[in-house]
Amino acid sequence: MSPQANNERVGDAHWAELMARIADNRDKNAFSRVYDHFAPRVKSYLLGQGAQEALADELLQAALLQVWEKAGQFNARVGSLSTWIYRIARNRYFDHLRRERVRDRPPPDAWLQQEDEFEREVHGGTQTEVERERLSVENALKQLPSRQAQVLYMSFYQGKTHVEIAGEMDIPLGSVKSSLRLAFEKLRCSLGAHL
C-alpha cells in the first residue's frame, strides 16, 4: 500500500511507516503528521471524559510526547496506531485521576499492556488485516442501534460505570449491561480474524 500523504484517511501501513521513521530516524516531519491526525482526536477523547480544557491540553501534550519517545515500542503487527494511542491517552487520564485522588479507577493491569506475544499470536495480523479490522469496526459502529451506541459511547468515552449510565439514561441496570454486551459482541465480531 502506497502512502497517501495528503489524504487524511491514510491507511495503517502509512502510520506504521511514519512510526518506523520516528523510531529509526527521529523524523520530526513524520511525527508532525502523526500529531496532526491524532492530537485533535486525543483532545476530543479527553474532553469527552470530562477533562477541562487546560488539563486536556496538558495530558494530550504528554501523550504525544510519549508517542515520540516510545515510537520504537509500537508494533504495527499487533494493532493499529489508533489503538496504541488510545491506550496511552486512557492510561494517562486515569492515572492522573488516581494521582489527584479524584477517582480510583486504574487502567487495566500493566501486565496486560505487555502481552505483546499474546496479541501477536491472536491477531497475527499483517498491516492490511489490521486495517481491514479497523474499518470493519468503524462500519459496525455506524450500524449500532441508538441505545447500544449511546451506552457504548458513555462507557468507552465517558468512562461511566453501568450504574452511572443506568441513572443518566433512566433505564434498568440490566438493560445497560445487555445493551453494552450486544454492542461489544457486534464490534468484536467485526474484529473478525481470530473469532
Partner: peptide, 18 residues
C-alpha cells in the same frame, strides 16, 4: 480486554477532531 482496546482505538479514530 484486548478486543475492547481495539474497539476503543477504532472509536478514537472515528471521533471528531477538536
Amino acid at each position: 480486554i484486548s478486543d475492547a482496546d481495539h474497539i476503543g482505538g477504532a472509536l478514537l479514530q472515528a471521533l471528531p477532531a477538536a
